[in-house]
Each structure stands twice: as C-alpha cells, then as structure tokens.
Amino acid sequence: MISDLLMPFQYEYMQKAIFVSALVGAVCGLLSCFLTLKGWSLMGDALSHAIIPGVVVAYGLGIPIALGAFVAGTLATGAIGWIKEMVAIRDDAIIGVVFSTFFAIGLLLISLYPSPINLKMIVFGNILGISDQDIVQLLAISALCLATIFIFWKDLFLWCFDPIQAQVLGFPVRLLKFMLLTLLTLTAVAALQTVGVCLVVAMLITPGATAYLLSDRFGTMMIIALFLGSLTSFCGAYLSYFFDGSVGGSIVVLQTSLFLIAWIFAPKHGILAMKGFKMKSLRLEFK
C-alpha cells in the first residue's frame, strides 16, 4: 500500500517533475500576490504568450531560454507602452493586439525552422521530459526571483498600493515597474515549462486570489500564496502519475478547487461568512 503511494518517487523523471513543479509553484504563488493586487492578470497572460518567439529563438541559438524570453518580453511590454503613447486605443485592446502578434510570430518560427521544441511542448509544458540543463535554468530563475522578492517586497507592495507615495518618497518607480515586469517574464518562462502557455496565467493568479480571501495582511497573504502554490504543484504533479493525466491540468484544477473552497468558507471574505454577517445584522434589526 505504502509502496504504491511512493511509486511516483521511484522514477527519476517523476521526482524531477514533482520537485521542480513545487519550486515553480512557490515562485508563481509569491508573485501572484502582486499581480492580483496590481490588476495585472491580463498582463500575465499577455507576457506568457509574448515570450514564445524569444524561447524559440533561444532554443535555436542554444542560449538560455530565460534570456530569449526576457528579450521578447521586454520588447512586447515596450511595444505596448509605445503604442499606448502614440494611439488612442484602450489598454486592453493594445495588450491583446501585441501579445497575440508575438505569439503568432512564435508559432510561425516553430513551423518554419525545425527545432527541438514543438507546439505540444509550448502549449502543454514539458515537465516530465525536462532536461537537466533546463532544471538548472529553472533553479537559477527561481532563486533570482525569490531573492528579489525577499529584498524588495515592501517597495514593490508600496508601489502597487500607493504609487503616489512611492514617488513622493523619491523611490525609483519606473525601476520598480520594470522589476515587477521582469519578475513576471522570468516566472512566466518557468511556469511555461511546467504547465504550458495556456495555464501559466492560472499559476500566476489563482494562489494570490485564494490567499487574498484568507488574509487581511500582505505578509500573511504572501506566505499563504507561497504555500498554496507549492503544495498544489507538488500534489498536482504527484497525483498526475496515478491517473496518467496532464501535470499542468492537475495542478491548475487543484488550485482552482482550493480557490473555490476558500471562496465559500473563508473566515471573513467567504460567501458563508458574508451571509452569516448579513443574517446577524438582520437578527439585530429585528430584536
């Protein structure tokens, strides 16, 4: 019985998949706190698609894919910012146009030039077949992101919460924005390899949204999101072995289930608690 449960750990590829997923889930969870509060969900989706041409070119040239993704991501955000200045269109329309264009360029490149990556990898992730070289890159990306967030989380949070105050204090607000965008790009690369491009945004939003329902303090929210992101990714990868399903799919379904549970049962922001509050005040009224 126990040996059955430990079965996934007997295979090296499953060990790798489980622990890499857990690490990526932790980083994504931490970052998701900033994205949900800043209202950057669409930006997360956009960037995860926009980095594809960079990933493809980097694979082709044999340079770290994080570097290629970073260049493509920066180009995309630069293009979004530039178009915003030049044309009077709503932000979401500009983001939509830019990220789908970048994604399309990525798809074209994949189809035109034969390379070790294929469409399936991009769309669904490739955590079960991840190479040691990619694992090293993922470890480096995660370490860099964790360290940056650990050092600058208060500055980043102030910028999200009250950019005016950040600027009045003389903080480098442009740099903080660039920092958060860079963190987002790097984390998107990591998540891309784990769950695939379609599900990146779930990894980058759901843990933060769940944690928001469970806490009134940003510090606590980050700890909860980190824990949730890592736990769901660990369990998702582990469970996927038994029903032979997609790793990304099971991680994201787990995350959404926890979100739903939190949404219903959260002590303060859950729908039951809110209903209870209403009932209580009604009872008071009728007394």
Binding site: F161, D162, Q165, V168, G170, Y212, S215, M221
Partner: peptide
C-alpha cells in the same frame, strides 16, 4: 527634496484602493 523626505502628500480618498490587505 523627495530624497530628503521633505515632501509629504495626503491623498484624496478615491486615490486609494481600500481593498488592499494593509492595516
């Protein structure tokens, strides 16, 4: 002056997002 903490600003209520998890 900003770097020297010489300027403070008290925002209008609608400039602040009151749903943020801060005390």
């Amino acid at each position: 002056a900003q770097k020297r903490n010489w300027i403070a600003y008290v925002p209008q209520a609608e400039e602040v997002d009151w749903t943020f998890p801060v005390s």
